[in-house]
């Protein structure tokens, strides 16, 4: 009798908990893979395809399914580091040469207006029409280089984005180690000077 009661109680518990779990799985269903979203947030969204996938999202999917994390040259070593931190994988050296950030520039005198680069641009950063001069919207260009191969007259070149006053960053403070006697290159009294940031 007691055994039957115990079984009944356990069975009841199983039914109740099963119902709760079933309810939760419907009510709190997660659309899509949250891991892919997190990976995609780390990828630089250049949509350049240098990883061998047609865009950043497909590569994020692939990484979630076990693809290597070192195939994104625009993301650089820092990108690999962050992906490794997220996924708990080992940091690997980048599977390509790391390049500084670039910008495509159309030589407008040579451009014949073929529209091939417009079709190739993954982010619609090129404006122009058939037989009209094309130009690149600098702010939108991701520097993916996808417009280079289709150009029949090779009028597009990549330029490294130079440091300017708007994108300049304060450097990490480094303590200068100098030979004694200490030279006079130290600067302002209170806040610490420029030279320390060299």
């Amino acid at each position: 009798m007691e055994i039957a009661l115990a079984i009944a109680i356990m069975a009841l518990g199983a039914v109740v908990l099963g119902a709760a779990l079933g309810f939760a799985s419907i009510k709190f269903k997660v659309e899509g893979d949250p891991l892919v979203e997190k990976i995609e947030a780390i990828l630089p969204q250049t949509q350049c395809g240098q990883c061998g996938y047609p865009g950043c999202r497909p590569y994020a999917d692939a990484i979630a399914n076990g693809e290597e994390i070192n195939k994104c040259p625009p993301g650089g070593t820092e990108g690999v580091q962050r992906l490794a931190d997220l996924l708990g994988r080992e940091v690997k050296p980048l599977d390509a040469e790391e390049k500084p950030k670039q910008l495509a520039i159309i030589d407008e005198n040579t451009c014949i207006g073929c529209t091939l680069c417009i079709q190739a641009c993954p982010v619609d950063a090129i404006v122009g029409a058939a037989k009209q001069m094309h130009t690149i919207i600098a702010q939108q260009c991701t520097g993916c280089e996808l417009c280079l191969p289709p150009c029949p007259v090779e009028c597009i070149r990549m330029e490294v984005i130079q440091e300017n006053i708007d994108n300049w960053k304060w450097k990490y403070p480094v303590v200068e180690i100098k030979a004694a006697p200490i030279s006079a290159s130290d600067t302002t009294g209170g806040s610490g000077g420029m030279k320390e940031a060299a």
Partner: peptide, 14 residues
């Protein structure tokens, strides 16, 4: 911001 914009533009293009 640039990445988000690029992503939005890429998705719109697709």
């Amino acid at each position: 911001n640039a990445a988000d914009q690029a992503k939005a533009r890429f998705e719109f293009k697709q």
